[in-house]
Each structure stands twice: as C-alpha cells, then as structure tokens.
Design a protein around this nucleic acid. Structure first.
Lengths: 344, 344
DNA sequence: TTCTCTACTGTGAACGCTCACAGCGTCCTT
DNA sequence: AAGGACGCTGTGAGCGTTCACAGTAGAGAA
C-alpha cells in the first residue's frame, strides 16, 4: 500500500505541506510563504492555499520548522526557588496564569521548569539553550546565578523583579515596591500612627530591600525616627510572619502599626497579635503587601498594597517577545495601589 | 569562512552528532545508538562516545529527533476551567509542581496549557495533536468534552479525578473521595454529633458527587436519617461556602456539625459561623476536605481530610508515561487521611 | 520595440537526527 | 571445514520544513 493511500484503517498520517500544495495546485514554496505571512503571493494562490489548508486540516510540523529556523517558538517559565515558597504563594498562580494566556495569544507554548535543586538547575539550563527561544525567570535570591548564566549564554530573558547585581543588562518587570511601601507607611502615619514597625522581606531579594527602603525613606519624610528595634526581617512565609511579630512585641511593646512586606507574613502577624491579645486595628494597625487572596482570607481583612500581577505578566511576555524579536533589554516598573480594608 | 571554523566571534554553532562522531572516531550511527540506550555498542566505543559528548558539550537536538521519530518527548498539562477556581485553589499548585518535577526526572518537559475560553480550547486541541505525546488533564465539569475528544484523537491521556461518563476508556488518578468523606462523617458521629450537615461540592464534578455519596452512606451506617435540609450545594469557592453556611443556619438552626467538601469552602463556612455567633467547635464542628494550606490559615485550624496530592501527581505521570509506552489505560485510587486539628 | 524592474512562482539543498540495511569479523554448531 | 548466528559498525535515505536562488510573465520606461 502506497503511503498516500494510507487512510481508512490505522493511524492516519497527518497532512504535510506537500498535501496542501497538491490540493491547492501550487508548490511547497508558495504554501510556505502563505504560512509565513503571505508576502509575495498572488491573491488567487493565497486563496487556494488557505482553503486547501482548511480542507486538509493541515497544521505545520513545528519540529521540522524548528530544525531549519533554529527557533523553537516556545518559551520557558523558569522558577528557581529552593523553598516551596512560590507555590505556597497565591501570587505565583496569577503570574503563571497571566504569562500562559498572554503567550497563548501569540501561539507560543509555555514550558514550565522548576529548578529547586542544583541538579534540576543544571538539567534545565542544559535544556534551555537550544530548545527554547527565551526565558521568563522567576527567581529572587541574589545568590542565584541563573540570570547571569542565561544572559551569558545569550538567551533572551526577562525577570520578574529586578535581578540583584545585574546592572542594566537583563530585562525585568517589577512592581514599584518602593513607591508601594511609601504609600502604605504614609497612610499609616496619616491615620495617626507614630510607632510604625516593619516586618521586612528577605534582604537578599530586591522586593525585600526596596520595601524596606520605602519604609525608611517615608519615616524620614514624616519626621519619624528610624528605630532598628522596629525592623524585623521575615522570609515571606506565614510562620515567619508570626515569629517576627512575637519578636517585635517583645522588643517594642509600644508599637501601634506594622507594615508587613507580604500578605502571607501579615497573616502570621495577625495570628501572633491575636495570641498576644492585641486588637487589630484598634491597638495595632497592620498593613500588608501583595493583595493576594490571603489578604481577603485574613481576619480582619488586610489593608494592603496591590501588585498589578496581571499587568506584570503581560508586560513580561511583551518584553520577552520583543527581545526575541531583536529589541534591546528593557526595564519596566509598574505602579502599585493602596487597598483599604479593615486591618489599618 | 567555512562553517566548521565558525568559532571565536559570533554565536557558536552547537555541536551536532557529527562533531561527536568525529571526536570519538566512530560513525553517526554509533553515537545515535549510545544516545538511545547504548545497545549493540562495544565498551570501547561507548566510552569514546561518552567522553566525546562530555568534551563537546553535545546535547541532542530534539527537533531533529522528533521530526523522524514522530514523538515530541513532552507532555501537556491541560487545565480546562472556565472559572479561576483552580488558580485560587492551592491544591492546584501542589499538583502542578508535582507533575513538573516527576516529569523532569524522566527528562520530559511539561507544556502548560489553559483552556478557559472556547477559543483557547480549540487552539490547544489543535496544538496537542502532533506536538505532544500525552496529556495530563485537569478538568472537572461533566460538560467538558475535552477528555472524550482527546481520547477519540488517540492522544494518551490521564485525568485528575474520574472524568464523568467516560466508562473505563480513559485513565485517571483520584483520591478516595468516598472513603475520605466516610472517615470524616464517621469521626463527627463518634465525637457525639447527631445533626450532621454537609456543604457539598458541585454535583457535576466527580469529587462533589462522591463526597456527597460518602456522607450519605455513612449517615445510613450510623443509623442517622438523611435530611435534605442538611445538604447544601457549593461551588468550591470561599464565597460559596459562606453563602451555603448562611442558608444552612437558616434552614436548620440546630445543626451541630458540618462536613464541607473543600477547605476553601470551609473557610467561608467559618466566616459565616463567626458572623452568626456560633463557636467552633463547641457549638458546631466543621470538617473540611483537601488539607490545603487554607486549612492551616483558617481560624480555628481545620480538621480535614488530606488528599495525597504528591502521590496523585506522581501517579498521574507514571500512568501517562506507561500509556505513552504502549500500556493500557489504568485507574488509580489513592487513600486519604483524616487530619485532626481544632475545628472538629 | 526592447530593456529593466517587479511580482510571483518553483526547485534543490539543507537542518540534525533515526532507522533499516548491509557488511564485517568472531564464535559456536554441525 | 563449512555454515549459521550474533555483536558490532558504517552508510544512505528520509522526516517536513524554510531558504536562497533561478526563472517566468507582465508592466512600465526608454
């Protein structure tokens, strides 16, 4: 049985560009041109090819295309987190979902890669070079060499949040952490609070650093002293927030407000405060950061700073695709928004 | 400048199987055999090839391989949810992460696809056939035709949870919803509760149906009457749980326990109970389902039924890969575990 | 008319791999 | 001693595309 007759029984061979060409009465070349923008194709040929594509149910074989173009038309979403943190963090969902759908609109599939361990990191790096056109990088700790490695390998790359110590070489998209922290601290001040503490994020993450800087700067602007006893570092986890708040109450029982660098930690803070018998917001105001679902789950509901996650993801995709298309790296900083609820 | 000399400046051409063959002093065929299991290769040749691979830093070009084998050595994680539900749901994270790492161990990349809208669904279906070796399907509503379509298209497939109305044709991995519900209801009964209500999951999802069935069966086993007033359907969302609990309190103010079909809904139930001035667990015991992070975030912390998400994901991957390898579809049901905390 | 330019079209040669096949020796069987 | 059988090896073909090139026809300019 000849190949072209192989229908009926058995797995039907998917139609190729040849089949379309034959059906349309043109050559492979013309079909290929139609597939790639339709330039230099006569209207009649274009028509014939398009209906032939429709009739045969043709889909390009991306492997064959990639083999010759060297592109894969796919990008990786690379998560490098030693901790389970990002998976506990609801923000992550929104980011991942946003990136996936934004990419889907461009017909670019997303490969999810997780590099928790060193072995996974190596495996992923090996895969990325040559199999993926670009990388959406979600990483944070400054010890993480992955951004530098990717950049050195010449892989188009955009990070979520400013990668520490990368100068202006690598693209990133971030929320205005500093501005958001400033808004929150100013809001606490304007509500009459004068002993404003903070549970900071990890100081090896840009978000942690920037939000702390915003806190400190705003204190100065408001004429409040900077008291080291009021600054407790956290790790973005619920448990970490609870521990930090206990420590804080011990060190400075007179605090009347606390700006917490993430909603998840703020939940922990709320728990500690409840255990200590402090009323929120009457005794102590609590301000979070992120406006994640955790903010609504908290009791009382959290006053927080909204990160524009949907815009962050769509901007990451936009910048990455532009870069794959040859444009220069870019940094995008998106504004945050103060969301008032019940905790402050 | 000849191609092979193209080093130094510019983007270096990645090494091919030819380079490795030359380096090792063997033919392409031998290198290929080493790459694919090393059968029928002499020890000395194997050695030479392996060190040549190491020396050149060679990685197979999967596009070239896929072009000829017809396989892509990748699988899709397909999420078909009209709602944002699964992304609000922390379980989803665990599942996705588990699948990703389990696949990574087999060197199989995971493509994340989300089919919220009909257009997305079509796009994804078109992509899947021919570009992916199998599909991990996370879908739930019985109206969803995607499982049947994929099955008809001959795409290896394993669903998370029993796909409604598919007979035994499609593989799935699920927690023992019925047994879990039974454990919880029996536990409530044995703690002395006699007016046990339930906030069910959506009844067009297998989980919703099974948990309700478990509730009902256990009531019978315990000699308790089945009272329709005590059964309120929910939608797996926090808000839905809150609404359901309000309705329940109105319809049956004398309930002393409620089995809620998800932790997220249980959070909502807790909120409603708090607003109504009922103490948990003194006045009303609340039992959840999932043991998601929400269970720990809830106040009081939820007594719940743990779904073995890590095992679910690893089993899904195992079954899918087996099926891609030619084995028959399989159904796997994994045991749950009762987790006692403060709410019951 | 003739020439050039442009728009369109078809063709061969890759891309890097796997697969089937054929050609070796070497060892075991008869 | 001849005949497999087997382990190992190299070679050619081809997977479905894109790309560069060459060629054709028609329009406009000289």
């Amino acid at each position: 049985m000849s190949r072209t007759e192989q229908n009926g029984t058995g797995r039907r061979r998917p139609p190729t560009i040849h089949d379309v060409a034959r059906e349309a009465g043109v050559s492979r070349g013309t079909v290929s041109r139609v597939l790639n923008g339709g330039h230099n194709v006569s209207p009649s040929a274009l028509d014939a090819v398009q209906s032939a594509i429709h009739k045969t149910g043709y889909t390009v074989n991306r492997h064959a295309r990639s083999l010759i173009t060297g592109r894969s038309d796919s990008v990786a979403f690379l998560l490098t987190e030693p901790q389970e943190r990002f998976f506990e963090d609801p923000n992550f969902n929104v980011l991942l979902r946003g990136c996936t759908t934004a990419l889907a609109a461009h017909d670019v599939p997303l490969l999810l890669m997780i590099a928790g361990t060193e072995a996974e990191r190596r495996r992923n790096m090996r895969y990325i070079a040559g199999h993926v056109d670009g990388v959406l990088l979600v990483s944070s700790h400054s010890g993480d060499p992955v951004a530098a490695q990717l950049h050195d390998a010449g892989v188009p790359l955009v990070a979520c949040g400013k990668p520490p110590g990368q100068g202006s070489k690598v693209s990133y998209v971030a929320a205005d952490d500093l501005g958001g922290a400033r808004d929150m601290v100013r809001y606490l001040y304007e509500s009459g609070r004068r002993r404003i503490a903070t549970v900071a994020g990890p100081l090896d993450t840009p978000g942690g650093v920037e939000r702390l800087a915003g806190y400190r700067a705003t204190l100065a602007e408001c004429g409040l002293p900077y008291d080291e006893a009021l600054v407790v570092p956290g790790d973005y986890s619920r448990a970490g927030g609870e521990a930090a708040a206990s420590l804080l109450l011990e060190r400075a029982p007179d605090v009347d407000a606390v700006f917490v660098a993430s909603d998840l930690m703020a939940q922990g803070v709320l728990t500690a405060l409840e255990k200590a018998g402090r009323r929120v917001p009457q005794d102590i105001a609590v301000g979070g950061f992120d406006d994640s679902p955790a903010a609504l789950a908290a009791r009382p509901e959290l006053t927080t700073v909204r990160q524009p996650w949907d815009r962050i993801s769509s901007e990451m995709v936009r910048v990455l695709l532009a870069q794959i298309g040859g444009e220069d790296p870019a940094a995008v900083i998106l504004p945050t928004e103060l969301v008032r609820r019940d905790s402050a």
